[in-house]
Nucleic acid binder design. Structure first.
Lengths: 151, 151
DNA sequence: AAATAGAGTTTACATTAGTAAACGATTATT
DNA sequence: AATAATCGTTTACTAATGTAAACTCTATTT
């Protein structure tokens, strides 16, 4: 199963480039450059550097097309987003995952479809829900260890 | 309302320190050092540097207690988590927020209470749900612009 | 064929982050 | 009082990031 470079770290600047590639499937550096020129106010050289670094770290593939390259993503956006979003959960106590999701939901606009879909997922999650999520934090990094229930 | 330094960037290493402070409300550097010693395998100096940087960037308060300092958080964990988690959503198309939440839910263990609470939130969200979330992406960074509905 | 433009590669340079030793001022020990 | 242990501050040094100029081919235009 492709876990190809899921753990590679894509920086903010690089992510801008990745988005262009993901949105277009196949792109030339020229296209990436012009797409980002407006938004990022970068010089061409900056985009070139980023493309180079992304190829280097395996996030992008290149295919020689005549004298130039055609860039394509080597990792799926979904996977990259997932890996990135999991970083949050490494920063908090497992017990708070629910609260964070709650706060995320509150902070964003959702469509009726989104809501329905999420409701379905939650329904399914019930089959695997636990009475209490257990804290995986190191001692001293969260206070779960303090309040043992029914004590 | 306190938006005190909500946008300050707390790095991974610094976050480890923040967690200790958040979990203990009031701590001395010594406590932070010993708490992190095991988990992080840092030298004392490393923790000291981090404490210093956090004070410097306003994430921590210090209170002189005799000759030493008592550190306390100047930003709430909830706010910090929130600000950090919003970074994900700046990397994706608004239309995909629902999918990302979906994937987060799938990836984590939730308690029955969490699920119920989330269901309630979703129920409430229905009042503000939209038919279709609109894409805020820059042209060329997502393909929403391509498939206009009913066209 | 010579000159020019375009594409990728190298080099560059400042800032942030990770990690830590050295230093200076105090306080606690002997 | 002299010495050792502390605690915070300064300094240090490497790697990662952001940003970009310079350079080298190669292809296109004149």
């Amino acid at each position: 199963m492709s876990t190809i470079a899921v753990d590679l770290h894509i920086t903010d600047a690089e992510w801008e480039v990745m988005r262009v590639v993901w949105a277009n499937t196949q792109v030339t550096s020229k296209e990436v450059i012009s797409t980002l020129e407006g938004k990022m106010d970068w010089k061409q050289a900056t985009t070139k550097t980023l493309l180079g670094r992304l190829v280097e770290k395996g996030a992008l593939n290149t295919e020689q097309e005549g004298r130039k390259y055609i860039y394509s993503a080597n990792i799926e956006e979904k996977e990259a987003v997932r890996s990135f979003s999991n970083d949050i959960f490494d920063r908090i106590c497992r017990k708070n995952v629910g609260n964070v999701i709650e706060s995320i939901i509150k902070d964003h606009t959702l469509s009726f479809d989104d809501i329905q879909r999420l409701e379905e997922i939650l329904e399914m999650k019930k089959a695997f829900a636990v009475e209490e999520v257990d804290c995986q934090c190191a001692e001293g990094q969260c206070d779960c260890h303090l309040h043992h229930h029914g004590e």
